[in-house]
């Protein structure tokens, strides 16, 4: 016997079966088109953690910034002053969704909504946005050539409480294959309150390009006493895919009292620290391919950048095409 008989066992799938499965997959496509919102939350690498029921996961795994002061009688208050990129292994997110653990139940059962999130809503202009949100709006004074303000929206991520459950955190770690992380029993039942401030989004448009400018007073997180929150930060970093050693090294560089951890999908783009009017910003650049045109041909690949920075009491994000030069120029002109 040589290898050939082994290859000879190969056969084409029955045409009836191939057609039936193709039909089933088309039905899945149709279902996806009929429920675009739900699907979009699932399809992105980071946003799965931002879906309504999963906002808590973001707070828990990424947004929640532990502080070094461990025990205080009253709750700690966190305000964003700077950003730090945390490379996230997208396979871990996939494992959460494909694994046996019902991730939504894992987290959402621990969430108590105090104020519901408000979907983004179009308003007449910056003045109305400022009036409705109470945000003292800033705007870029320099725009890319031919770009103009096209739309303003306001929204709010809401306010909620998250109650830590040690058993569920352990289950989460297990699902993600993080075996060597200990969840302190003292975390059990600790309640964290997250208040997402109103967000104003301005869209500047030119030709095929959109530049999105977001501003918000930033989230406030009230942290309970008696919890070693530096450990919680290290736990979050481990869940994001860092090794124990990497998490420890990273944790040492973070000012936990004021830093918002931004999940960057590993290999999803490159990021660097930039100066924005004296503040340290985080510029993330990735490559996107345009959607196919009417002829069905794939569009060309383009660079896209997002810049995050803060000023006292406020956080900003600016996203647009290019490797960050235009975005940075706009950001530096924000007054």
């Amino acid at each position: 016997m040589n290898d050939d008989p082994l290859s000879e066992l190969r056969e084409e799938p029955r045409p009836e079966f191939a057609a039936s499965l193709a039909r089933r997959l088309r039905e899945l496509d149709e279902h996806e088109r009929a429920h675009p919102h739900g699907e979009r939350l699932r399809v992105r690498l980071v946003p799965p953690l931002l879906a309504a029921g999963l906002v808590a996961a973001l707070a828990l795994a990424f947004t929640l910034p532990p502080v070094r002061a461990a025990a205080r009688e009253f709750l700690e208050l966190f305000r964003v002053k700077r950003f730090a990129a945390v490379p996230v292994d997208p396979e871990r997110l996939a494992r959460l969704q494909e694994g046996k653990v019902d991730f939504k139940a894992l987290v959402s059962e621990q969430v108590e909504w105090i104020e519901p999130a408000q979907e983004p809503e179009v308003v007449d202009g910056p003045e109305e946005a400022a009036a409705r949100t109470g945000v003292a709006l800033r705007q870029p004074t320099v725009l890319p050539e031919e770009a103009a303000l096209a739309e303003v929206r306001v929204g709010s991520p809401g306010r909620f409480r998250v109650r830590l459950d040690v058993a569920k955190l352990e289950s989460l770690a297990q699902t993600l294959g993080v075996e060597d992380v200990a969840v302190p029993p003292a975390w059990d039942g600790a309640t964290i309150e997250v208040a997402g401030a109103p967000v104003v989004a301005m869209r500047y448009h030119r030709g095929e390009d959109d530049f999105m400018f977001f501003q918000s007073p930033g989230p406030q997180v009230q942290l309970p006493p008696g919890v070693d929150l530096a450990q919680l930060g290290a736990f979050a970093l481990r869940m994001a895919g860092m090794s124990a050693e990497e998490a420890r090294a990273f944790a040492r560089t973070i000012d936990w009292g004021s830093t918002l951890l931004v999940p960057i999908p590993a290999e999803g783009g490159n990021f660097r620290e930039v100066d924005v009017n004296g503040a340290k910003g985080l510029l993330v650049t990735s490559i996107q391919k345009s959607k196919p045109g009417p002829d069905g041909k794939s569009g060309r690949s383009r660079r896209h950048s997002v810049l995050l920075w803060s000023a006292p009491g406020k956080v900003f994000a600016l996203a647009g095409p290019g490797d960050g030069v235009l975005v940075l120029e706009m950001a530096q002109s924000v007054r």
Partner: peptide, 17 residues
């Protein structure tokens, strides 16, 4: 626009071709 959430927008830039 659909993405007032900052990180939601960030996620958009990482979407696959």
């Amino acid at each position: 626009m659909g993405g007032v959430r900052l990180l939601d927008w960030l996620g958009t830039v990482a979407e696959r071709a």
